[in-house]
């Protein structure tokens, strides 16, 4: 292990991590939005939209992100839809994550017992109050564990961005190994930086899970 080499590579990896975080952050935000939208559409069985959401969810849940990115990045320009690499990465992550989040939120919504809605209505709440005060909070607390798992999964999936020539951690490591043959140093930095991204998320996720468990009803 050569510490000087590690020191000189640090800024490169730092830059790469910022790129991963930037695209990952945007992708995850949109994934959550898409997920909420699709979950509501599926849960309330809104005609046509529900079927479209169903096809979208199945398609993206059953194909790997790498292939999706290849399709978005290399195939779409061929039929006249050019797309920038970083935009493509965020879009791919958002679409993949949206499909996973939709299933998470939907099963959360389904887990809220019917009696909850009925009791709220009989207490004189109107429909929107029932949704915002009764259904959503309970659905959210049920879906938190798998929500956290999805976020970690999506952050891990960002490692395939290098395939569409985004200069992320993977790309930087591979590039430096190819150029200077400092394999051990590069791989160590790679592991350290991914741990730097994911350990805080994992710890925060654990704390969030523990916090919302108090909100569960009937335990």
């Amino acid at each position: 292990m050569n510490w000087e080499v590690i020191g000189s590579y640090l800024p490169l990896f730092w830059k790469a991590m910022l790129l991963t975080l930037r695209i990952g952050w945007i992708g995850i935000i949109f994934a959550i939005l898409i997920g909420i939208l699709c979950a509501i559409v599926r849960f309330y069985k809104i005609p046509v939209a529900s079927q479209i959401a169903g096809v979208y969810i199945e398609l993206f849940r059953n194909t790997p992100l790498l292939v999706q990115l290849f399709f978005l990045y290399f195939a779409l320009p061929r039929i006249g839809i050019p797309i920038r690499a970083d935009f493509c990465g965020a879009l791919g992550l958002a679409l993949l994550g949206g499909a996973y989040m939709a299933e998470t939120f939907r099963s959360g919504l389904e887990s809220v017992a019917k009696i909850q809605t009925e009791s709220a209505l009989s207490l004189g709440m109107n429909k929107s109050q029932v949704v915002t005060h009764i259904i959503f909070p309970q659905a959210f607390s049920v879906s938190v564990p798998s929500f956290v798992a999805n976020i970690i999964f999506l952050l891990k999936e960002t490692s395939v961005f290098s395939a569409i020539s985004l200069m992320d951690l993977m790309f930087t490591a591979k590039d430096l190994i190819g150029l200077y043959y400092k394999t051990t140093e590069c791989l160590t930095l790679l592991v350290v930086f991914y741990a730097l991204i994911l350990i805080p998320v994992s710890v925060l996720g654990d704390r969030l899970e523990r916090r919302v468990r108090h909100a569960e009803f009937g335990n």
Partner: peptide
């Protein structure tokens, strides 16, 4: 296993262990 992306593990085994 939960924290490390599978791609990193692939790199570790394919490039790292062969080198080490």
């Amino acid at each position: 296993v939960r924290i490390m992306p599978q791609m990193v593990l692939l790199f570790l085994v394919f490039f790292g262990t062969t080198r080490a």
